[in-house]
Design a protein around this nucleic acid. Structure first.
Lengths: 160, 160
DNA sequence: CTTGAAAAATTTAAGAA
DNA sequence: TTCTTAAATTTTTCAAG
């Protein structure tokens, strides 16, 4: 783990929300010269502190779609079945997120697909993956109240 | 809703994962001249098709933290209580995502905070918001199997 | 949409705090 | 080290076709 100083955190905070800011503007915002600002950004990139830059696309303007969140519970908690399920997930592009969790569920999935009938197909593939020893509950996203974008790094640093 | 042609979709697909690509390189990838490529990107931005550019920060390299997913069920499904809850969500930076869903739960929340004790504080604030007429179930994220980044636009267009 | 020139930004290198 | 300055390179931007 690299040590990050206050300036690095400022850079990260800005780039989280304005990833295409010019280096000159960024340098000014953090009170550095452009070259030393660039040096820090490059270091954050090569250290993996910044792992990627994403454009956020307003899907509604591209095409109709549905977003669902599915809770998944495996009947048998063997390593093999988990591995098999995770492997399957990675072959389905509509499954855009998968996390393993503690508690009554094993996974949360986020699935984005054109309509409910295509959702049902995906659901069937997921359920059949481990010989139907899997319970999936689906929740259609009706509204995105707060979207996952930037994280307030200061709320993490100072003990929330 | 703006009409998007094949080239726009290619641009969106690339920018989703490589938001800081230079316009020259982007132009080459989509077989356009730099100036007309830039024109398209600017149009996508001003139409809101591209809503933001985010740097993805590897939180583990910044500081210790926990990510939780919480399911929320309101006892009373009145508009006022929903509004109150949504308003509260927006005052808590550690709640980085909130969606309204159909099914047995009303909301899914994603919460990122320094540790479980700060999580408990946030939980208490959420529960007390509507006179404790709210049920929250917490799931600690143990592993991020597949992270939410780019969406395969072709899987949406062609009927999944 | 393309070309091509002007303006701006990025990147590199030399050297100071 | 990390920073700044300054020059060279590359990119962005805009006008004209």
């Amino acid at each position: 783990m690299t040590k990050l100083d206050r300036t690095d955190l400022k850079i990260l905070q800005i780039l989280q929300d304005e990833a295409r800011i010019t280096n000159q503007d960024l340098a000014e915002r953090v009170s550095l010269s452009p070259s030393s600002c660039l040096q820090r950004v490059r270091r954050l990139e090569s250290n993996g502190v910044i792992s990627a830059y994403h454009a956020k696309v307003n899907l509604a303007s591209v095409c109709r779609h549905v977003m669902c969140i599915a809770t998944v519970t495996m009947k048998n908690h063997t390593r093999e079945e988990f591995r098999a399920f995770e492997a399957l997930i990675n072959t389905i592009p509509e499954v855009v997120e998968c996390v393993t969790v503690s508690g009554e569920f094993d996974f949360f999935l986020r699935i984005i697909c054109p309509d409910m009938s295509s959702y049902l197909e995906i659901n069937e593939r997921l359920v059949s993956s481990v010989n139907y020893l899997v319970t999936i509950n689906t929740h259609v996203v009706m509204n995105e109240n707060k979207k996952f974008g930037a994280i307030d790094l200061s709320s993490l640093d100072e003990g929330g």
